[in-house]
């Protein structure tokens, strides 16, 4: 089986400061990888370099395209990269405001991706949006409401629906449960886990919260000062950390 995503020697610098460097890994279809580290460790920089929000200084991000097989997405033309970003990829922002159109109804938010790839039947678009709102547990009668009237948890679920409606194969998630109450977090994590499983989605989840990766991630990558200090199966890394920094990270969580 080919990896769906292969990252090789990715590096991004901000002047003299290292954003991230020497990052390499493979992600296989259906696999969820967590990237953890404290703030400033380079995990969000890495995520943005892979997903196209930032241009890395060097390295490769090879994605197994639906048509054409493995290709370095950094070398794709802009139209193809943008097309990829709204069809086969999903990006869930920490702050739903960054990933939603706050002035557009929930139905319009979910329908946008469909329309951007050519859907032109209002009834069909609306039915599909309705179906997706149901899958993320948003009530039917909220379809014409704008996200600004939604709670934080609902906004985040709407953002997920908006991203998954075109059936992407790879999702990037940046602190998807950040800023939410603990009980809301638990429900959202449960939902994400279910969707990932049902759709056979591959995902990369950036978080500082080890509880999130414990629940979602098959594999784990620990970052510090722009470098990967340890990676392996989630349970292995969390239960038997080898690196001193990982040990510190794990123990500090366990104390809470």
């Amino acid at each position: 089986m080919n990896p769906i995503l292969s990252v090789r020697n990715l590096e991004k610098r901000y002047g003299a400061r290292i954003g991230c460097t020497g990052v390499s890994f493979d992600l296989y279809p259906g696999e969820v990888m967590g990237i953890v580290g404290e703030s400033g460790s380079g995990k969000t920089t890495l995520l943005n370099c892979m997903a196209g929000g930032l241009v890395p200084d060097s390295g490769e991000v090879v994605f197994d395209m639906r048509e054409g097989g493995p290709r370095d997405v950094l070398k794709l033309s802009e139209p193809r990269r943008r097309m990829l970003a709204r069809t086969d990829w999903a990006f869930v922002h920490q702050n739903p405001r960054d990933g939603l159109r706050m002035g557009v109804s929930a139905g319009g938010n979910v329908g946008e991706r469909l329309m951007s790839v050519g859907a032109r039947n209002y009834g069909a678009i609306r039915a599909e949006a309705q179906d997706w709102l149901g899958r993320v547990e948003i009530a039917d009668d909220r379809i014409d409401d704008r996200p600004r009237d939604f709670s934080g948890g609902m906004q985040q679920r709407l953002q997920i629906a908006r991203n998954l409606v075109t059936g992407p194969r790879l999702a990037f998630m940046d602190e998807p449960t950040g800023g939410l109450d603990v009980s809301v977090q638990a429900r959202l994590l449960d939902l994400i886990r279910g969707l990932v499983h049902d759709m056979g989605l591959s995902a990369i989840v950036v978080t500082h919260d080890l509880a999130v990766v414990r629940l979602l991630a098959d594999r784990l990558m620990v970052m510090r000062q722009g470098r990967v200090v340890e990676q392996g199966l989630t349970d292995q890394v969390l239960d038997d950390p080898q690196d001193a920094y990982t040990q510190l990270l794990v123990s500090s969580v366990l104390q809470v």
């Binding site: 951007s116 032109r120 609306r126």
Partner: peptide, 18 residues
């Protein structure tokens, strides 16, 4: 340039929904 006109239809969708 990229013929990305999905947003235009979002506006029309919103009109019909409202």
């Amino acid at each position: 340039a990229l013929a990305e006109y999905g947003l235009m239809h979002v506006k029309l969708y919103e009109d019909i929904a409202r």
